[in-house]
Design a protein around this nucleic acid. Sequence first.
RNA 1: GCGAGAGUGGCGGAAUGGCAGACGCGCUGGACUUAGGAUCCAGUCCGCCUUUGGCGGAUGGGGGUUCAAGUCCCCCCUCUCGCACCA
Length: 864
Amino acid sequence: MARGYDFQAIEAKWQRVWEESGAFAATEEPERRKFYLLEMYPYPSGRIHMGHVRNYAIGDVLARFLRMRGYNVLHPMGWDSFGLPAENAAIEHHTHPAKWTNDNIAYMRTQLKRMGFSYDWQREITCSDPAYYRWGQWLFLKLYEKGLVYKKSSAVNWCEVCQTVLANEQVEGGLCWRDGTSVVQKELPGWFFRITAYAEELLSSLDNLSGWPEPVKVMQRNWIGKSVGAEVCFPLADREGALTIFTTRQDTLFGATFMVLAPEHPHALALAQGTSQEQQVRAFIERMSREDRLQRTAADVDKAGVFTGAYAINPLTRERIPVWIGNFVLLEYGTGAIMAVPSNDQRDFEFAQKYGLPIRLAVKPVDVDPDERHLQQAYEGEGVLVNSGPFTGMASQQAREAIADFLEREAIGKRTVNYRLRDWGISRQRYWGNPIPIIYCDGCKTVPVPYRDLPVILPQNIQITIKGGSPLQKVAEFTDVLCPRCGAPARRETDTMDTFVDSSWYFLRFTSPKDEDGPVTPAHVNYWMPVDQYIGGIEHAVLHLLYARFFTKTVRDLGMIAVDEPFRRLLTQGMVCKETHRCPEHGFRLPEEVDASSCCRTCGRPVQIGRIEKMSKSKKNVVDPEDLLAQYGADTARLFCLFAAPPERDLEWSDQGVEGSFRFLCRIVRLIEDQEELLKGPNPSIPFQKLIAGRALYRKAQQTIRRVTEDIEDDFHFNTAISALMELANEIGRFELVGSADDADERRVAYSYAVETLLLLLSPFAPHLCEELWERLGHDGSIFQAPWPSYDPAIITAEEIVVVVQIDGKVRSRLVMPADADDTAMRGAALADERVKGWLEDRPIRKVVVVPKKLVNIVIGGVR
RNA sequence: GCGAGAGUGGCGGAAUGGCAGACGCGCUGGACUUAGGAUCCAGUCCGCCUUUGGCGGAUGGGGGUUCAAGUCCCCCCUCUCGCACCA
């Protein structure tokens, strides 16, 4: 450890000071500019990891910076503390989920405090606390009253490992988002939030979120998946009834030569009944119901289907067309039935080819006339209508409108908008979640728990098992209640809510975390909301961020808040990665399991220094923040996380890079310690204009103020801000503090100014050390009460500039000129320069381009 | 397949269309030292020369616009992420 930098003592000291003085508590002050800064709250898994450190370090720099800039900053922290890991831990360690969770929270809270993050801990939220989840139940009931919550039985995503339902958003590539195991379909009753009622607004208001990264908005747009088209009614042939389909390509209706239903379509079996196809249809539907649906609908699975034996009438051609059942048609999208236009849709084309169904061209490319009998693939682009009765010859875009008009006029169909977004299933068959406040009564059916009876408290006395349904079902004192409406014996709902419900409104609760009269206090929530800056991982691009937007809009429509969107600006930080070590025999190895010659310590075989991967226990490439705290302290850990990469990019961990950040802080200590006596004394006051020996250093300090301020403010480029601070530190280090007797005073003024500026600018990044050194320089009070330094544009501008002289775009000379040199002077000086003359050799000058104060480019062209 | 982002020294990364490689890591040499894995100083893209100093080349590849391109436009390659039979 370096002399003089006792980070353990320094960090403990200032954390205590901050805690005792309540330095970061926020209160509403309507006359001040507010700033609500929020980082995604963590799941209390046991200990913080490097991803947390990075996320929260980014946030904390902003929080401290903004406070020094005069903002009234709300910077709270809480715990996303419901969820399955608590139950798994309960089973493994024979402990109670509540105890496990609360112990973890207690430990992680101390870890966050040891990192020196400037949270208003008085506003801490724990979402497994009845004081919080009570209001989640309250909101559930309000939405229930408005018809935005409903119960239905449906095929749901079921994770066998978690023994619970997953929302569509929680299934990634057919696998459970949490444990990566396969998900099966299961018919189950459950509660849903009608997020589809907000589909259009969730989509359109993305356009107003200029402070969000484009990739996140794109992902949300894709997820919502708006399609504009029409529903068209196809009457059945030879019998009553009709099939309704959804299409975005009503311009291709004349090419619809057959129809396909989803296997689960309610008419699928009925249509085949009494035909010779009945047996085959029954067998096909049964086979499909056994197959995993996510596999069945994967794009690379071969299309398969069966003829129902029934026919429908194409309402435009009046032709009889066969009705099929196909594996590639989804019940949940549109109407669960399609018209098949094999000439103009590749999926239909493949199906038609396989089963020998007719193909008739409806739209052709403008300048080609394909032979429809020998099509190699469908033509899906825009073009001109053919074989389309009165619409033949029309451009396809126009035809979509014309045919939609025609359908509506003839009452055959109507314009429709379809969304890929489905309603959000929130029922979870697990214990450790917010109980759904519903009671089932034989007489009164579904009865909401009266508001006065909230919260429905999770029973403490419980047996947690993974198998055999929700643990709550077996707790009679929980389930057995009297119906609040008629007083008869009734049963409580035993499902709990998805934890994403808790995180969909916690940011509102932070504005009045202790209000016992409602989920939010209007005066407070309207002062603080929206969150001005939200920071978190990209992995929540659709899940959490879509749900939170939805909840904000519903709470707005309950009249409780004024904002349309919760998060004005969003920063998605990259992952923390590190190289991996892989032994051919033992798989991933810890760094200490590899010897100096890159061989496995267990078997001696050479270890591959593998790819840079996201830190994870299974890849054995994690760095524990705790070790970092012990070896280097919080300031170094924070500084490295911010310096190694810009925040939105992945960060590659480097032990040597950490060492470098630590060295930088040691250097700062020396800059001050070596001159402590001199710096402490009273400083003479000398205006900048009188500075000679100290002029350059003073100016550098001012330039650094500008760079750091702009880097933080404009786009969170903390890495370049830190590099500017390093430059300033280097220049201070080079500065000769002791000069001649005449200039001793002005040298001291410049040095002192530069050092203090450096500390102020560095303080958001390395808060403990800067507090300590600030105090040692003789200041009373916290450095964070000092205003952020300002600069004088006149001082930043140097008296002299270096003008680059190019000939044909190549640098040939540099001229030192007065800063006020105008274009004519620059041009004249460039042409008069001896080196330039040597290059010109009397050749004619075609053009001279002058970039004010920077560059002169002399164009002669041709050969040299 | 569709969509988004990225590709710059040995490495992490800098560069409002205006000197490519700031800052850091690593490395090389030197100083101070009983010692150095501390600290300080110098050097560090590649090639060439007449070696003080010059010249040429270089930002995944190829074209283009421009006095001037890492940056703007077109085509291609590679990687990462997201979506993926959504009618």
